[in-house]
Amino acid sequence: MNAVARSVPVEWLYEFVRYRELFFFLVWRDVKIRYKQTLLGASWAILQPFFLMVVFSFIFGRIAKVDTEGVPYQVFSFAALVPWAYFQYAVPLAGNSLISNTGLISKVYFPRAIIPASSALSGVVDFAIASAMLIALMVYFHIPFTAELLLWPLLLLPLVVFTTAVGMLFAALNVKFRDIKYTIPFFMQAMLFLSPVAYPTSAVPEHLTWLRYLNPLAGILDAFRASVLPARTIAWGELGIAIGLTLILFTIASVYFYRTERSFADLI
């Protein structure tokens, strides 16, 4: 084995595969600790999007009265809040994961990308629990299940890839620039308003559509919602663009991470 002349990305991926067990152990650790430490345990997965739904229902459902495409505002917003809550939980966790695992990075070798990637994946458990809550909500409001709802779990794939890409970028930048962590909450807030969580995609004025296309999260969240709404089908074109942009971003994040990871132990 060659310890230093490790320059080909193929070998980078190979190392990642070789350490896959560590990856799953770290996911398992994050999940386990999350549910061990908090008093309410798994219920956080439901409570967080649920409270946001209540607040949004009041502001956007009652005061601003947005168009909810034929379903109660509760279901309308919750359909996007479930994937949003995952994003909101996973990005800061992954973004701060390297600097909160300083001990590991300065004492042991393993592919560094495992740390932010496992943090990003650990949020999936919450997503699954919140998804069950969504089904319950749909039953309560008598929303018919469509065939597209079967795509709900599949849509998680682009969402996780996008989240991992953003998390990896933040994590790598965070090692180099210690004030990046202050920009994460700001970024999250901006993303919440730039993505169709509280409002429908149709509310975005025509001349700003390009802005919507630039944000892959918007396309992904809208697809999640469309799979729930009986009156609409998934906008495949927009979803395609979002997935394409996600893959580009993931590539950029991986390359940046790969280029900087060698200096992590020296900087951290």
Binding site: A3, V4, G103, S106, K107, V108, S263, A265
Partner: peptide, 24 residues
């Protein structure tokens, strides 16, 4: 864990390093 500024290292076989006990 860290990378050299220059020079080469070849290590053959499965490597384990114990720089601290109970890491993680």
């Amino acid at each position: 864990i860290t990378y050299p500024t220059s020079g080469r290292i070849h290590v053959k076989g499965r490597v384990a390093s114990l720089i601290e006990v109970g890491t993680g």
